[in-house]
C-alpha cells in the first residue's frame, strides 16, 4: 500500500483551514514563509524555510527542522538536529499548528447517527420549558396578591423572557463560533427546562420538608438546584464547544459547586440560629398536608428543655470566637 500523509493546518478556532495530501515514499513537504514552500504560513515567528516533512517507506514521517532559531516542535518537544520520526501528531512551526495523519493513524468505527432526544423534540421542549418558567414567575407574582395582577404578570413574564434570552444568546453564539450552527432551540430547551426544574423543585422541596416536619429536607432544594445546574451546564458545554466529555464534566462540576454554595447561603441563611425562622422553608404551606403527627404541649416542652444545652453550646462557641474582654475569673 502506498505511503500517504495528510497535513492539516489548524486555525485559531481549532478548525482545519488547509488540508493537503502527499503520497508516495520520499514525498516531501516544506513548511515556511517562503512562497516556494508546499505549505506557506503567514506566521512571523516562522522562518522562510522552516521545517521539512518527508514521507518514509514504512508510512511514517520524518520531521526535520531546517536550522531555525525558534525551532520546530513535535508533541511539545523540540525536534533535534537530526530530525525525528512520527506516525502522527501535532507539529508546531512558529505559532502555526499542523496536524499530521498517516496510515498508522487508527480510524475508529463508524458511529451510528442518532438524533438525540433534545435535538429531535427541541421545539416542543423549548416551548414547554419557557412556559414552565413563565408559570413559576406568574405564580410567585400572584402569591403576593398584587393590586394589579396583570401588570405583575407582564413584569414577571418579561423578566423571565429577558433572562432566558440573554442566557440562550450567549450559548448560541458560542455554538455558532465553534460549530457554525446557532442551535437556539436546543439551548433554550436546556436553559428553560433547567430553570423551571430549579424553581419548582426548590419550592416543592420546601413543601415536602414542611409536610414531613424535617427541616433538613428544606436543604434538599439546594441539592435539586445543584444537580439541575450541573446537568444543564454539561449539556450546554457539550452542545456549544468541542470539549470532550471529561473537560465538560469538570467545567460543569466546578460551576455547580459555586452555584450550590450560593443556593446554600440563600436557602439556609448565613445564620441558622436566627430567631426569625418562620421564613425558612416554603413560602406556602398547604393546609393540613403534613405527614407527621402533632406533638402535645408536654412533648414540645421536653424538646424545648434540650435547648438549654444547645444554647450553652452556642455560648461556648461565641466565647471561643470572642472571649469576654474582662472575665476576671
Amino acid at each position: 500500500m502506498e505511503a500517504v500523509m495528510l497535513i492539516e493546518q489548524v486555525g485559531a478556532l481549532g478548525h482545519p483551514i488547509l488540508r493537503q495530501r502527499f503520497s508516495g515514499a520520499g514525498a516531501e513537504c516544506r513548511v515556511g514563509q517562503d512562497l516556494d514552500c508546499d505549505i506557506v504560513v503567514d506566521d512571523e515567528h516562522a522562518a522562510a524555510q522552516h521545517a521539512l516533512l518527508t514521507l518514509l517507506e514504512d508510512g511514517r514521517v520524518r520531521v526535520q527542522d531546517l536550522g531555525t532559531h525558534n525551532g520546530t516542535r513535535v508533541g511539545g518537544k523540540r525536534v533535534p538536529a537530526d530530525g525525528t520520526v512520527i506516525e502522527q501528531g501535532e507539529i508546531i512551526v512558529g505559532h502555526t499548528r499542523l496536524h499530521v495523519r498517516t496510515r498508522h493513524t487508527p480510524i475508529g468505527q463508524e458511529r451510528v447517527f442518532r438524533r438525540e432526544f433534545v435535538q429531535k423534540y427541541r421545539t416542543p421542549l423549548a416551548a414547554g420549558g419557557v412556559a414552565a418558567c413563565i408559570a413559576y414567575a406568574g405564580f410567585r407574582q400572584w402569591l403576593n396578591a398584587p393590586s394589579s395582577l396583570s401588570r405583575s404578570l407582564i413584569t414577571g413574564t418579561l423578566i423571565t423572557l429577558g433572562v432566558l434570552s440573554l442566557w440562550t444568546a450567549i450559548w448560541s453564539l458560542m455554538t455558532k463560533l465553534n460549530k457554525g450552527r446557532w442551535e437556539v432551540r436546543v439551548h433554550l430547551t436546556i436553559a428553560s427546562m433547567g430553570a423551571a426544574f430549579c424553581a419548582w423543585g426548590y419550592w416543592v422541596g420546601g413543601l415536602v420538608a414542611y409536610a414531613a416536619q424535617w427541616s433538613v429536607l428544606a436543604q434538599v432544594g439546594v441539592v435539586v438546584v445543584g444537580a439541575t445546574a450541573f446537568v444543564a451546564l454539561y449539556l450546554h458545554l457539550r452542545e456549544a464547544t468541542r470539549y470532550g466529555r471529561h473537560i465538560a464534566l469538570a467545567f460543569a462540576g466546578a460551576s455547580t459547586i459555586v452555584i450550590s454554595a450560593i443556593a446554600w447561603v440563600i436557602a439556609v441563611g448565613v445564620d441558622t440560629s436566627d430567631v426569625n425562622r418562620m421564613d425558612l422553608g416554603p413560602d406556602v404551606r398547604l393546609e393540613t398536608r403534613r405527614v407527621v403527627p402533632n406533638r402535645d404541649i408536654a412533648e414540645y416542652l421536653i424538646e424545648v428543655d434540650r435547648l438549654q444545652r444547645a444554647a450553652g453550646r452556642e455560648r461556648q462557641k461565641s466565647l471561643l470566637n470572642a472571649p469576654l474582654a474582662d472575665a476576671g475569673d
Partner: peptide, 29 residues
C-alpha cells in the same frame, strides 16, 4: 448575648394546631 438555639414543631394547643418556634440564647457574661 450568644446566638440563639432554636427548635420548631407542630403542636396541638387547646382547640387549634400551631407551628411553634422556640429560640433560646444565653448571656455571655
Amino acid at each position: 448575648v450568644a446566638p440563639f438555639a432554636c427548635h420548631d414543631g407542630l403542636v396541638s394547643l387547646d382547640g387549634f394546631d400551631a407551628r411553634i418556634s422556640t429560640c433560646v440564647r444565653q448571656y455571655r457574661l
